[in-house]
Design a binder for these strands. Structure first.
Lengths: 352, 352
DNA sequence: CTGAAAGCGCTTACAG
DNA sequence: CTGAAAGCGCTTACAG
């Protein structure tokens, strides 16, 4: 059992409150210099660290945050978590990690448990549109930040990228390569990324005067398996598309695998664009053309906003929106991987 | 502010302790059925959940575990974490995640902070041999489990695989393919995986009557960049090896990249074997031959052992050692990726 | 200037 | 059978 304030007080023959004040460097404390010295020596010698649980109870603050994501084995969320930890650690917070596997029930149960533990705030990257769990967070006045996906527009502090723009840029890239029949793996329409990227894709097609074939736009979910399945559907159409824009890189990877299985060459028979630029994207052969968003920064910014919210008690909703950026690789342009872009990636690697 | 026991007691016109007993289903509680009904209704209606911090202080148990790893963006550790969470959640524990980036200082500082928070136990996958931090955990009698890497043999509860055997199997595979000059990227000799896999590699070479050239065995660390650098060194030797066994998959991937940059074909000019079978390994082109260990199971087993330790108060050290298993892919055998093995992986994928 | 007391929100051994 | 009290280990407003 670690030593307590009371035990220390006995040893030093002073009152526990005095030890506490010395340990916390209370500036209002006047104390005989030699007494202070004696106490500080004792503190060092015993390596005293106040019991965080007792402290949390008294201060009504635990210095614990939580990150709720679908699945940390998805590289996107792993990078996001690192961003959060890097942003939180320097301010004295530790971070709990909860995986939901996309289940609303698991999400709700996690949130309730986190609330019971009195975490100081929650970063949620697994919300759906009009998410009851998010409304519950608001109702309970639990400090929270949504990342990447929003729930009810403008109602929560949010960190993400401009999904509409990103999808337009990706689609424009395909159009400019000459593609006329472009398929879209649309994630889920109940998720903001699915909704917005789909909207961006369709808007861009319309702006370019291309006809929209509803059969080419299918929900895919966000897993590799879901991407493969959805790709299979549109690639089996009599008049199959020559290009696919997928809602995420993982979905795109599923589509790549399926294309290969169907005997289609990428990019010659089928061009594919993903979204996020996870580390894996640049390693595939061919490399995956994608829309880059600053994943680590998402996490770090979310942590900062959340801690500000906690410290200031400021409930005003803030929004940080990053600009997405197209990264062209071999999955849309044959040979792109051998060009300067690939060299750039190799360099980035070596200094990692 | 969430409702407290005292407030509930006022509403129900009973003593707080009675509410507590009802909420906790205290079997020794005799109470008028209608009173109980009234209290239970109130509990449901207010969605009362006891304050976990106060509970933790009283019970001296927080129901929080911590996982300490080098870096969650490394897929190995992401999978490990999922195993821990899956093993812990069902027993009512949440899990803190701490990344050390391989820095002993960060590790120590994390452990101290976790101790101050009174986490119930710690799972450590970032230890080095004779790790002072691990000795500190023992000295403080903090329940802990080491995973994948041990510190002082047999002194801590440990979950891992037989690294000596795995390395022998990997090396044997290369020898049986006819390789006579085999290089080894040895991680770090201060880490048990580096030490044991190196030993296994050398033992196998000796058993096969192959000469050991010290110039072909180099420390590489555990990052991709480290693997590339180390590979560059041994591939620049006048009499370069025809095969490399790398301490981990990430290290092996660095070696692959370097081989390609030096104009060597894999596997024709250089065969490469990794270790762990992270999901990435089967996706590379060519696929990476590797030694598979049950990563998710590492985490789940560690969580179980840790919770048993906590619940029973049992300090006896236990060891769970899994058997590693060779997985042959295209990085050692040309064409292996098109065979039944690859099909198997594709299937595993689709059902993911 | 320092000590003593109250109180954060629970749980449970102990009285009545 | 239920209520009242003690106590987990801190912090800090308040007395002296």
């Amino acid at each position: 059992m670690p030593i307590t304030l009371k035990q220390l007080a006995q040893k030093a023959e002073v009152h526990p409150s005095t030890i506490s004040r010395v340990a916390n460097n209370d500036p209002s404390l006047r104390i005989a210099p030699d007494t202070r010295e004696r106490i500080e020596a004792l503190l060092r010698e015993t390596e005293y660290r106040p019991n965080g649980v007792a402290r949390g109870l008294k201060l009504r603050q635990t210095f614990v945050l939580a990150v709720v994501i679908p699945d940390v084995t998805n590289p996107f969320f792993a990078a996001l978590f690192r961003g959060v930890e890097d942003g939180a650690l320097s301010r004295g917070y530790n971070v709990l990690l909860c995986n939901t596997d996309g289940s609303p029930d698991r999400q709700r149960s996690h949130l309730q448990s986190l609330h019971a533990r009195r975490v100081d705030g929650i970063i949620l990257a697994s919300s759906v549109l009009k998410d009851p769990s998010v409304r519950w967070l608001r109702h309970q006045r639990i400090p929270h930040v949504l990342v990447n996906r929003f729930s009810d527009e403008g109602q929560d502090t949010f960190v993400g990228a401009d999904d509409l723009l990103g999808a337009r840029v990706a689609t424009r890239h395909l159009v400019e390569l000459g593609h006329r029949r472009i398929g879209h793996l649309a994630g889920k329409l109940t998720v903001s990324t699915g909704l917005m990227r789909r909207r961006g894709c369709l808007e861009e097609l319309e702006a370019r005067g291309l006809p929209i074939d509803p059969a080419l736009v299918v929900e895919s979910g966000y897993t590799e398996a879901g991407g493969a399945k959805a790709a299979e559907r549109i690639l089996s159409l009599p008049d199959r598309p020559t290009a696919i824009f997928a809602v995420t890189d993982m979905t795109a990877i599923g589509a790549c695998t399926m294309a290969r299985r169907l005997g289609l060459r990428v990019p010659e028979d089928l061009a594919i664009v993903g979204y996020n630029d996870i580390p894996l994207a640049s390693r595939l052969v061919p490399g995956l053309t994608t829309v880059r968003v600053p994943i680590h920064e998402f996490g770090a910014a979310a942590a900062r906003l959340l801690i500000d919210q906690i410290v200031v008690g400021d409930a005003s909703r803030r929004r940080v929106i990053f600009n997405p950026e197209l990264v062209v690789r071999g999955s849309t342009v044959a040979g792109a991987d051998d060009g300067p872009l690939r060299a750039q990636h190799a360099a980035a690697f070596a200094t990692e």
